[in-house]
Amino acid sequence: MSAPIRVVVVDDHPLYREGVADALGDADDIDVVGTAADGQTGVAVVTDLRPDVVLMDLRMPGGGGVPATAAITARLPGTSVVVLTMSDDDSVFAALRAGARGYLLKESEGADIARAVRAAARSEAVFGPRIADRVLAFFASSRARAAAVPFPDLTDREREVLDLVAHGLPNAAIAARLFLSEKTVRNRVSDVLTKLHAASRAEAVALARDAGLGPTPA
């Protein structure tokens, strides 16, 4: 039989913290090895105990859950942090940027929290249903925004240069328009040709105009 999953619960509400610990303690494959009441103490406890999974609240004294998550994931990359919070808002993205592997709301049932712990211990990402909808909607809108921008591999400046090339401007005119040196413009045009896999300036112009850059058709 494999060793139990070692868990630390970090939450500033003692009744909820102990309730989660007790609920998880009923599972044969999960062992709550420690608890903490604030972010700074949580980092210290986790660093000392090196659990497999941390259940982390966000709104706490001592720096809160986001910086605590960032500190834990930086120090202990083998430890997965799952946020367990009341915050049904864009805090999920701050937590994910800090390194959290999952995000659950405190309305979750004990069985759901236990399943999340097991998933996080397997290095899987886990989200509650409403949070999953928010994350999926965000990435769907991000893909839509990327699709709306022609040549997303280009930087904004490179796309600006390509647009002026598609308008038929020579390098000197582009340099004057953008307050750049001619050498810089030549380098930008070369970078654009490379990224577009275009063999010539004329081919880049054709690609740009097909994508809607350059002069508006009459």
Rank of each mutant, 00 (worst) to 15 (best):
D11H: 03
D11L: 02
L15N: 00
R17C: 02
A21F: 04
A23Q: 09
A23R: 10
A23H: 07
L24K: 03
I30N: 02
V33E: 07
D38M: 08
G42Q: 06
V45I: 09
D52S: 05
D52Y: 01
L58V: 14
R59T: 15
P61F: 03
V66C: 06
P67N: 12
A68I: 15
I72Y: 11
T73N: 06
T73C: 09
L76T: 03
V81P: 11
V82R: 02
T85Y: 00
D89N: 12
F93L: 08
A95E: 04
L96C: 10
L96S: 11
L96P: 00
A98F: 08
A100C: 03
L104G: 06
L104Q: 07
L105K: 07
K106S: 08
V117G: 13
A119T: 09
A120S: 10
G128L: 14
A132N: 10
D133F: 02
R134D: 13
S141L: 03
S141D: 14
R143C: 00
R145W: 00
A146K: 15
A148E: 13
V149T: 14
P150H: 08
R157T: 15
R157C: 08
E158A: 11
L162E: 07
L164F: 08
A166M: 11
A166L: 08
G168R: 01
P170Y: 09
N171Y: 06
A173S: 15
R177V: 01
R177W: 01
T184E: 15
N187Y: 15
R188W: 08
V192E: 06
V192C: 04
L193I: 00
T194I: 04
L196I: 01
L196N: 11
A198V: 04
S200P: 08
R201Y: 00
V205L: 07
D210K: 13
A211Q: 11
A211F: 07
P215C: 02
P215D: 04
T216P: 01
P217N: 03
A218H: 15
